[in-house]
C-alpha cells in the first residue's frame, strides 16, 4: 500500500467525497483509475473484497494495450523496412544472380525464351573451359602482381603524404593539398593520351612498370587519411612528442594503430579499384603478356564472339573471387576497429 503515501492531500480529497472510501484507498490517480477498473471485463470479479488487485489489473491491462499498440507500430515499421531492404537486395542481387546462373548455362539455354531462371541442363564445364582455353592462370598472376604492387605503393604514398599534410607545417601546405585534391576532379580518360605518350617514350609499353607507374598517383587516399589524421586528438600526438618519439615512430606506433579502420577501408578501396582497372592495362598490354584478368576476360569475349556468355560469366565470377576473399578478410578488422573506437570514450 505504499503507493498511497505520495498522494497529495488535495487529490486524495476528491475521491473521498465523490466515491466510497473503498475505491479511494489504493489509488493514486482516482479519476482515471476507478473508471476503467469497473468497465473492463474480467478484472473486477475476484477483486471485489480488496480494491488493490483491481488497480493492478487495470495497470496490467493498460500495459498490455500499450504493448499491443507498440507492437503494431513496430510491425508497421518492420514491414516497411523489410520491403525497402528486399527492394534494395533485389536490385543488387538480381543481376548478380543472373551472372551466377548464366555461368552454369549452356549456349541454347542462355537464349531460351522465356528466360530460364534455373540452368537446365547444368553446365559447370564453362569453368573448366575458361580455365583451360584462356590462359587464366597467367592473367590471374598479372592481376595479382599489378594489384598488390599498386595497393602497397598507393597505401604507402597515401599514408605518408597524408601524414605530412596533417602534421608538418611547411609553406604552401594548403595550396599543395588543394592541388592534390583537385586531381580527383580530373577524369582519368583525359590524361590517358599524355600518359601513353610518356610511357611509350620510356619504352615501357607492354610491361608492368608501364601499367603500374601511371596508375600509382594517389589523391583519394591522401585526402581520406589526412582528414582522418586531423580528427585524431592532438594531445596524443603531443604526448608522443613529449615521450621523444620521432616522426616515423609516431606514425607507426601511435598514429597508424589508431587509424586502423580507415586504413583498412583505404586498402580495400584501393585493392578493388586496381583489381578492376581495365582501360589503361588494356591500352598498355599489346600482346597480353602483362594483361590482367579484366583484359583477359575481353579476350575471352572476343574469341567466342559476343554470343557465348556462359564462359564469360564463369570468367567474371572467377575474377571476382579474390576481391570477395579480401573483402571478407579486411571487413572484420574494419568493423573491429570501428567498434573499438566507439567504446573507447
Amino acid at each position: 500500500m505504499s503507493n498511497t503515501d505520495p498522494t497529495t492531500p488535495s487529490t486524495a480529497a476528491i475521491p473521498a467525497t465523490t466515491t466510497t472510501p473503498r475505491t479511494s484507498a489504493g489509488t493514486t490517480g482516482p479519476a482515471r483509475t476507478t473508471g476503467p477498473a469497473r468497465t473492463t471485463g474480467p478484472a473486477p470479479l475476484p477483486s471485489r473484497p480488496d480494491p488493490t488487485p483491481s488497480t493492478d489489473e487495470v495497470e496490467k491491462d493498460r500495459a498490455r494495450r500499450r504493448a499491443r499498440k507498440q507492437a503494431n507500430g513496430l510491425l508497421g515499421v518492420k514491414v516497411v523496412s523489410y520491403l525497402g531492404a528486399l527492394l534494395a537486395a533485389l536490385v543488387i542481387a538480381l543481376p548478380l544472380y543472373f551472372v551466377v546462373v548464366t555461368s552454369f548455362k549452356t549456349h541454347p539455354d542462355i537464349y531460351s525464351d522465356p528466360i530460364s531462371w534455373i540452368p537446365h541442363p547444368f553446365a559447370p564445364e564453362n569453368y573448366s573451359y575458361v580455365w583451360n582455353e584462356v590462359d587464366f592462370g597467367q592473367f590471374l598472376r598479372n592481376s595479382v602482381v599489378i594489384t598488390a604492387v599498386l595497393t602497397v605503393v598507393k597505401v604507402v604514398l597515401g599514408v605518408l603524404s597524408a601524414y605530412a599534410f596533417a602534421f608538418l607545417r611547411f609553406p604552401g601546405r594548403n595550396v599543395l593539398f588543394l592541388l592534390v585534391v583537385g586531381t580527383l576532379m580530373v577524369p582519368n580518360e583525359i590524361t590517358i593520351i599524355s600518359n601513353y605518350a610518356a610511357v611509350a617514350q620510356l619504352g615501357w609499353r607492354d610491361s608492368f612498370p608501364g601499367i603500374i607507374v601511371p596508375l600509382a598517383g594517389v589523391a583519394f587516399g591522401t585526402y581520406l587519411m589526412r582528414n582522418h589524421f586531423l580528427s585524431l586528438p592532438t594531445e596524443i600526438m603531443e604526448a608522443a612528442t613529449m615521450d621523444g618519439a620521432g616522426f616515423l615512430r609516431t606514425l607507426f606506433r601511435v598514429v597508424l594503430p589508431m587509424s586502423w579502420p580507415t586504413l583498412m577501408a583505404f586498402v580495400l578501396i584501393t585493392a578493388v579499384t586496381e583489381w578492376n582497372q581495365y582501360l589503361w592495362p588494356f591500352l598498355m598490354s599489346d600482346t597480353g603478356r602483362v594483361a590482367p584478368l579484366q583484359v583477359g576476360l575481353t579476350l575471352l569475349q572476343n574469341n567466342e564472339g559476343p554470343t557465348n556468355w556462359g564462359p564469360v560469366m564463369a570468367g567474371t565470377l572467377l575474377a571476382s573471387i579474390p576481391m570477395i576473399v579480401i573483402f571478407l578478410l579486411l571487413q572484420r578488422s574494419m568493423i573491429k576497429g570501428l567498434t573499438a573506437g566507439a567504446v573507447k570514450g
Binding site: A239, R253, K344
Partner: peptide, 11 residues
C-alpha cells in the same frame, strides 16, 4: 607532461 585528457595511447 600530464595532459588534461590523459592522452594515453589507446592501442
Amino acid at each position: 607532461m600530464v595532459f588534461q585528457s590523459y592522452a594515453l595511447y589507446p592501442n
